[in-house]
Design a protein around this nucleic acid. Sequence first.
DNA 1: CCGCGGGCCTGAGAGC
DNA 2: TGCTCTCAGGCCCGCG
Length: 293
Amino acid sequence: MPELPEVETVRRGLAPVMEGARFEKVEARRGDLRWPLPKDFVARLEGQTVTGLGRRAKYILADLSSGEVLLMHLGMSGSFRVRMAGDEKTPGDFHHERSKLAAHDHIVFHMSSGGVATFNDPRRFGCMKLIPRARLDEEPLLRALGPEPLGNAFNAAILARACAGKKASLKAALSDQKIVAGLGNIYVCEALSRAHLSPRRKASTIAGRHGAPNERAEHLAQAIRDVLTDAIKAGGSSLRDHRQTDGELGYFQHSFRVYDREGAPCPTKGCKGRIRRIVQTGRSTFYCPLCQK
DNA sequence: CCGCGGGCCTGAGAGC
DNA sequence: TGCTCTCAGGCCCGCG
């Protein structure tokens, strides 16, 4: 499911119940996610306080009072539902509480804030990992990540340098988390549409001599920032199952220019093109062949 | 090193 | 209705 805007939406939904709160009880109902949870996963969480909740690329990172960091990834189908303090039904209504668990609710965090956060992931491509804070720099999952597209370290020059010499397509390059972190299939397509660049164009063509950014790189970097900012404002995109943690739908899918719109008229003013679907490196790409060059 | 395809899982939807 | 097939918002790994 989730790309950067959806993950950021989830982080913001978790923050009110998790930040500053202690894990009172953790239920690991299924430990066989993408990687098995450590045997002592529950013991290392219970009693710890979450001192901060951050995000890096598509990872949510909870800083713990123990000095460890809880890293969480939603994979393709992961989601969190949050029940705030005060939302709970009659206390002690055991059967009611039990009945609230749904299929694929794998991990439940009961927080001292009175809130409960439940991790659901049908396909189990998601993961959770505990990492000592001092060794976060060496964490293989985070090490090779490129710059945060909404951070200060991202701009046209950085993007162009990372794409310089690449024989792969722009679609493949932007999907590569080492070049820029947090984009996925949807937002790559949407950013390229906004920048009027073809997903089939060689990535190297946004850089000039010595990897200097050209005008295409400037437009693309701006389009990436814009589409992510707009999507976060909308609470992300809800296609099949992404919801905000309070159960509300995100609504950025209504603003898609090209994604999943094969055959539809191109939204670019004055463009008579129709959206086309092609397959690149095994994934669907949507774009307008007329105005994306 | 680089780029691509396979595989990991389950579920929804289309077509028959 | 029910079966089979394809596809899905991610990412690690191994191959050429």
